[in-house]
Design a protein around this nucleic acid. Sequence first.
DNA 1: TTGTATGCGTTATCAA
DNA 2: TTGATAACGCATACAA
Lengths: 332, 332
Amino acid sequence: MSRRSDLTRLEDIARRAGVSTMTVSRALRGVEGVSSAKRAEIEEIAKALKYLPNLPAKAMAEANSGLVGISFPTLFNEVFADMLQGMRSVFERQSIATIVSTSDYSTTQELDWAERLVAWRPAGMVLTGSHHADELIGLLSGTGIPVVEIWDWRPDPIDMCVGLDHQDIGLTLGRKLKAAGYRAPGFVGCPEGLDPRAEARLRGLMQAFDQEIPAGRSASRNAFQLGYDGCAELLSSSPDIDLIFGLNDHVAYGAWMHLQSQGINVPAQIGLVGFNDLGLLNVLPVKLTTMRTPREQIGVLAAKAIVARCAGVTSPVRLKLEAEFVQGSTTR
Amino acid sequence: MSRRSDLTRLEDIARRAGVSTMTVSRALRGVEGVSSAKRAEIEEIAKALKYLPNLPAKAMAEANSGLVGISFPTLFNEVFADMLQGMRSVFERQSIATIVSTSDYSTTQELDWAERLVAWRPAGMVLTGSHHADELIGLLSGTGIPVVEIWDWRPDPIDMCVGLDHQDIGLTLGRKLKAAGYRAPGFVGCPEGLDPRAEARLRGLMQAFDQEIPAGRSASRNAFQLGYDGCAELLSSSPDIDLIFGLNDHVAYGAWMHLQSQGINVPAQIGLVGFNDLGLLNVLPVKLTTMRTPREQIGVLAAKAIVARCAGVTSPVRLKLEAEFVQGSTTR
DNA sequence: TTGTATGCGTTATCAA
DNA sequence: TTGATAACGCATACAA
């Protein structure tokens, strides 16, 4: 295997233009200090030779690859896909490539990924949530890599954070529904240690209703199914509830399908509430009561925080965004 | 900004171990030609010093970053997320990082991404479908980068391909339903040039029924909504249909919701067919008739093809996989 | 405005 | 089995 690739290098352009490699480098990077005549000529030659920069070489010279790593629990969830979309819209404009990974809600997997990522000397990294393996801090400290934790907000992030205070949102939602007269809430799709955000929301909800946190099963790959089955279980174990909280919209959707199949009237007999305000809900014959979360915005702001840091801005970004109560027809 | 990072380098380990950098390099890579005593000592020191390889430097020295680029039309579609999952399961085992991009069904965007990717000197790239910008071939030719086109099968891929013959699948499906006695099919979510696979399936279906290809709107971000609205339109424009093909399961799902809302009995009055056999369908009170596509398997095989090529295997992979007819209760 | 010398961390090559 | 040297392609630092 030959060591040199046959792709055009700065040196090839330099030879053709009769200048030094450095002049070409400066010209193509848009750095000051190149006469506009030379710059134009160099750009033309570069285009003719179909020059593509050697990014690994650039990364090595700069001790920074310019890559950004992003870790999500899963991509089988529109919530994370939305945040990813938001980040991409910013990163693409800057020609920043992203290395996306999924951790399956495992801090160990997240840590493994982080180690492999650091080996790439990334320009930044984005983590979902605020629960991480202990070793992660040690790994990151001293590297100077900008880190943004998203989705979760907390006062003392590793570096920066852009997200929601899920417990507070749960509390707000719970109070709203308590004020609407609901007294006996049930929960479908309760987390069991996998999803800390869902747990935090649940804590807030319970606080509003002065209840214990129920045990339950977590939202797995098929949240619809979980909602459907979970609703059936809930109705048989707690027949006197007057309100059902779904862990998220998907779960609530599944629960709604089950309530329909049982001929239970929503909201007359039982109220139903989701979380996130996902687009898929538009197809429900009824509008689900839920909380709208600014997912794409979170992605945009997180990406901008990293871009700004790379540009030298050192402000400590800690953004707590709000969720909006969406009154649907599944609650009174 | 300091140029040298403060992370451990091979040289640091070499100094501590009293050997040369090359010996450390060989030892940590598992290359033959290092005494087991030295190897053990070096590995220990590397661990103590928390050595993480400098991958950009490695990439430059080898003229190959080891990264794999993957392009999808979108990630807001479980189909692509499934294929991604399959690829990841293979690449993660090999510690191969992936740069994933979405093209929004635009060959121009795909081309832009490909250019940026080639600049990374990737070990391979995966493209969705067989429709690409003309310039893409020129860009890739001579680079030696292994390319796999997935989802679509075709006899003459750029390099390798792993996918389905969508037209043939449409034909099979259409014949099956014609044999079941259906005569007047309608289509919801017809593509308009965006999704060539959907068009190919549609051609196959139409061929089975000897009909013209209908005009229509493509599946956008919210396929449920499209199915719901599209079904309404279809019923008013073609009241005498006896069968509805959804562009995919999501669309069919939306259509089903609309049929329910209109009190139309499925399959007694109208049959309904989807495509893909997605997990979300488990929550439907009825099992949808559809075609099951081996999405994760496609991903796994595509990734393995790239890994094999990197290992020196030169076999021309061209895999046509089959889809399986799933008889549900939405057709007779 | 332009060029020269040097370094980035790793691997290939060849010599010992 | 080990080491010295050169090279990968680009950017920084400094000189002209």
